[in-house]
Write a protein that binds this DNA or RNA. Structure first.
Lengths: 220, 220
DNA sequence: AACCTGCTGTCAATTCATTGACATTATTTT
DNA sequence: AAAATAATGTCAATGAATTGACAGCAGGTT
């Protein structure tokens, strides 16, 4: 079979290619070489060719890559040609912000519903949905063909809710709770650990301004 | 004498160690071996020891690591013993959500102000701050010792605002705008590209459900 | 006190990712 | 139509990250 496993390192770079190609397309640029793309994106041309070749050849020797075609292909690889129905669990600040952020729709991620355990929020209108009680999740997932659940709840509840979602047949979890979920391998989890990211920023600021967060000045 | 550079791969893992050690500490656990931690965290014991040793030895042979001490040390490496003053640029859904999320304070990231270009939001109270016009940023950054700016504005404006922030002497930018910022190397940027993350999730869902149903690797 | 056990720190081996080099092939030019 | 040019696809070389192995030391045991 043609499909050999593709490393997550490569996958992580695809959205960035997709973004740049989209911009080139919007600028009306029709063709581009790996070298030109390399200059724009600040990665080596070799890596670009290597990455694309994981999925078969999208380019032509002597010509380069057709921007529109490559954009479409990468979109397809990322599954953006298909619609994904998603629900948001947790109607707090973050849950509401994500629900109201319309840009995901553009890539086929359709916001379908939002759930919270706080009765005071039931019925509150967010985007085109009303906040529903957690007890409705099962029915809703099953009858609305929901692929993805966005977990925007405290970490104390995340594991329990995730297990339920798995039982209901969810395919992927976009996890904003600060905890590592333990789910079967057929359920995909993508973590967004904001505080981890902020700590990394803190380290890098320190490294530069205080000469590295390196060694303890007094070991023990 | 220059410390040897520590790879970002290692740094990226530190917040996770920090989180697990904090939990162990809260459970009253005093000591732990790399092997025990390995079992809990699902990474190899070798990697744990290797990672910690980048910063000097925190453990003792025959004993293991003291949880409290290791927790403190990793916190210090990440710069969490220092306070960081931060402002949020953009009082939209995401900006407000981040401002209202109190958990960052716990690690020394203090929310000091929020700015937006929309006059209708001026004066709106968010947490302990009122939304201010963008023109106030310069003065505010300089007189309040602001380290970090959180960019929660559309990508069309992000580059321009980032340049200004650099001029005002900001040390780090936590960038939620979907664009790669071009800043001098002494300014640290940490990107949170949410849609990239969502696309990665989409790929992985696809890979499993449509892409030949392949697991990462056949069990040996 | 001497011995045994457990576990780190570290070096070597291995695996994985990135970069460099170039033969090959399409396009363009003359 | 043939030659020149351009740029891919791919293989080999290099570099980085992870894992494995073990000497040596601290702490516990008898």
């Amino acid at each position: 079979m043609e499909e050999k496993e593709i490393s997550q390192a490569v996958i992580s770079r695809l959205p960035r290619y997709f973004r740049y190609l989209g911009e080139l397309k919007d600028q009306g640029i029709e063709r581009i070489s790996s070298q030109e793309l390399s200059d724009i994106m600040k990665v080596t041309a070799s890596q670009i060719r290597q990455d694309f070749n994981n999925f078969g050849g999208f380019g032509q020797q002597g010509y380069g890559y057709n921007v529109e075609y490559l954009f479409q292909e990468i979109g397809r690889i990322l599954g953006l040609n298909q619609k994904h129905n998603l629900i948001i669990i947790g109607a707090g600040n973050l849950g509401q912000a994500l629900a109201n952020y319309g840009n995901f729709e553009r890539r086929g991620f359709l916001f379908k519903g939002v759930f919270d355990k706080n009765p005071q929020l039931y019925g509150k209108k967010i985007r085109d949905a009303e906040v529903q009680p957690m007890e409705h999740i099962e029915q809703f997932v099953k009858s609305n063909n929901i692929d993805i659940a966005v977990l925007a709840i405290p970490k104390t509840e995340a594991e329990r809710v995730a297990e339920q979602l798995v039982d209901y047949g969810i395919k992927g979890i976009w996890n904003f709770a600060h905890v590592d979920l333990n789910v079967p391998e057929e359920v995909q989890v993508e973590n967004v650990h904001l505080s981890d990211s902020l700590m990394k920023l803190s380290y890098n600021i320190n490294r530069f301004h205080n000469g590295g967060g390196g060694k303890p000045d007094a070991p023990q």
